[in-house]
């Protein structure tokens, strides 16, 4: 029999006189918590399945590509085309995760609690956008980085595709910013997560279908001058155009793209429109 050595005392209410960090740190904490949540960390096991499964699918071409490089000494998977090649997977990830970031706070009315603290609407929106953008960047950058490391280790004949790799990383930043702002903008208009998922995936399928359809119609009727414009209705081709204009990577599409400068402006306009939409939506939700 051991004697109890510890005694619990009721010491009453204690005031907190430690450090109080500023708005920036609170925003950072919200962003980090959101980013962890996108990949299911700190959530239920069920919430981890989808993001980790999609991440695994994203890595599959990398594994195949490294295998082919090692065994057949052939380079089959160019870095700049990775995102366009895997666009369906990225779109599903975006659709599955952007509503998670914004819908519960609207549905369960947690937003007023954030705003009753030293956190502004803009801080909240910035934290959520940044979390999704970092997640998407990771989703794209991790596979191509692993492939690049693999390429260096396998040591193929000829120089490594360093410029392509760096260009693709720059492109990944563009994809992350564009897709996260569009995803959050679409998802934040409904407090219902299921509906948000449907809206985001429908947006992707609609733009992809319209883009392909218009391109086919325009090129078959001999309007080859305007046909490339139809392509950039698809956000993935839009970023690919900008990526090849800015970083000099080879476009995934052989038929040619509209002028790079126009695509850059369109990309900026879409991002600005989406972010403004989100801010306006939350200004309204806050009052």
């Amino acid at each position: 029999m051991t004697e109890p050595t510890a005694v619990i005392h009721d010491i009453g209410y204690r005031h907190y006189d430690g450090v109080r960090l500023g708005r920036g740190r609170a925003t950072l904490a919200l962003g980090v918590q959101s980013l962890r949540g996108v990949f299911g960390f700190g959530r239920t096991t069920r919430a981890k399945i989808m993001p980790l499964l999609l991440m695994a699918i994203m890595l599959m071409p990398t594994v195949v590509s490294i295998g082919v490089m090692a065994l057949a000494k052939q380079f089959i998977m160019p870095y700049p085309g990775y995102a366009v090649f895997m666009q369906a997977v990225i779109a599903v990830f975006l659709a599955a995760q952007s509503p998670y970031l914004v819908a519960p706070d609207l549905r369960f009315r947690v937003l007023p609690l954030y705003l009753s603290r030293p956190l502004t609407v803009t801080d909240y929106v910035v934290a959520k956008l940044a979390a999704l953008a970092v997640a998407l960047f990771g989703l794209l950058a991790v596979p191509i980085t692993i492939q690049f490391v693999g390429e260096l280790l396998v040591d193929l004949p000829g120089p490594p595709h360093t410029a392509d790799y760096l260009g693709a990383l720059g492109g990944a930043v563009l994809y992350a910013v564009l897709l996260s702002s569009v995803g959050i903008a679409l998802a934040s208009f409904t407090p219902r997560r299921g509906l948000g998922v449907a809206v985001v995936i429908a947006f992707y399928m609609f733009t992809a279908a319209v883009s392909t359809l218009f391109y086919a119609v325009l090129s078959s009727t001999g309007r080859d001058d305007v046909a490339p414009w139809a392509l950039i209705l698809n956000p993935f081709f839009l970023v690919d155009t900008v990526q090849s204009a800015l970083f000099g990577t080879a476009p995934i599409n052989d038929e040619g793209y509209p002028p790079g400068i126009a695509a850059c402006l369109i990309l900026l306009a879409v991002i600005a429109l989406a972010v403004t939409g989100v801010l306006l939506r939350y200004r309204k939700a806050a009052s």
Partner: peptide
Amino acid sequence: CLPPDISATEFVVHMAQMSGL
């Protein structure tokens, strides 16, 4: 104003961080 799928502890810790702790 409580999200149903997280615990009270996690929620209150998070809200404390939002206040700058």
